[in-house]
Design a binder for these strands. Structure first.
Length: 207
DNA sequence: ATTCAGATGGCCT
DNA sequence: GGCCATCTGAATG
């Protein structure tokens, strides 16, 4: 268990309830290995997408197509889609419902130099859904539909949030009543989240 | 500090 | 052709 690329997390909590699972993801460390380069970050921001009843979800009303096909896999799988030329990653939840959790931001931990190289800049490496996938080397061609902890991407116990804040989701202004659902969860006071303003909390909001 | 237009690429209509 | 669960740099105040 001292292997940095071996999971120590029982991901069965993803099976039960998407909103609860979203909060429990905060603080977990996502680790990727591409070739011999290992990069990782602690999850600081997530958004839940509640499937067929959620107008903001790709699977609203049971929509099913080439892009969202992997959303219909069971919990513990990864859904990666591209938009505007960027990759975004979700962890799937439940069995039988096309629900998932968008990973919107992480706090960089391992392999920061590699992330800087992949991103072509030294700051703002992982504070957005398209940024973190680029920093961690996550590609649709290699990660879409894969299972967590199978060798390309694992989660490990990381840190514990001191406080969790919920807000409306970002970037879904055209989704009618769903724009107001408080399905975005962040580690309060952590600066590595989208649109961060103000001052970082003590210890970046971790216990 | 905040706002905004343009880039961007895959997939749907 | 048009739509996005986005990002960036430039232009503002």
């Amino acid at each position: 268990m001292t292997d940095k690329f071996q999971s120590d997390v029982d991901i069965s909590f993803l099976k039960a309830d998407t909103l609860e699972a979203a909060k429990r993801l905060l603080g977990l460390e996502i680790i990727t290995r591409v070739g011999d380069e290992v990069t990782s970050g602690f999850i600081t921001e997530v958004e839940a997408y509640l499937g067929v009843n959620d107008k903001a979800a790709h699977t609203f009303g049971g929509r099913r197509n080439k892009k969202n096909e992997m959303m219909y896999k069971p919990y513990g799988h990864i859904y990666v889609y591209t938009m505007h030329g960027h990759n975004c990653m979700n962890f799937l939840t439940t069995e039988g419902e096309p629900e998932g959790i968008l990973i919107r931001a992480v706090e960089p931990n391992m392999g920061i130099d590699v992330m800087k190289e992949r991103r072509g800049r030294d700051i703002n490496l992982t504070d957005g859904p398209g940024k973190l996938t680029k920093s961690l080397g996550i590609k649709r061609s290699e990660h879409n539909g894969m299972e967590l902890n199978n060798g390309v991407l694992i989660v490990r116990h990381g840190r514990t949030p001191a406080n969790i804040l919920s807000t409306p989701r970002i970037g879904i202004d055209n989704k009618e009543e769903a724009v107001d659902y408080p399905y975005r969860f962040i580690v309060e006071g952590n600066p590595h989240v989208s649109r961060f303003k103000g001052k970082a909390a003590a210890n970046n909001g971790w216990k």
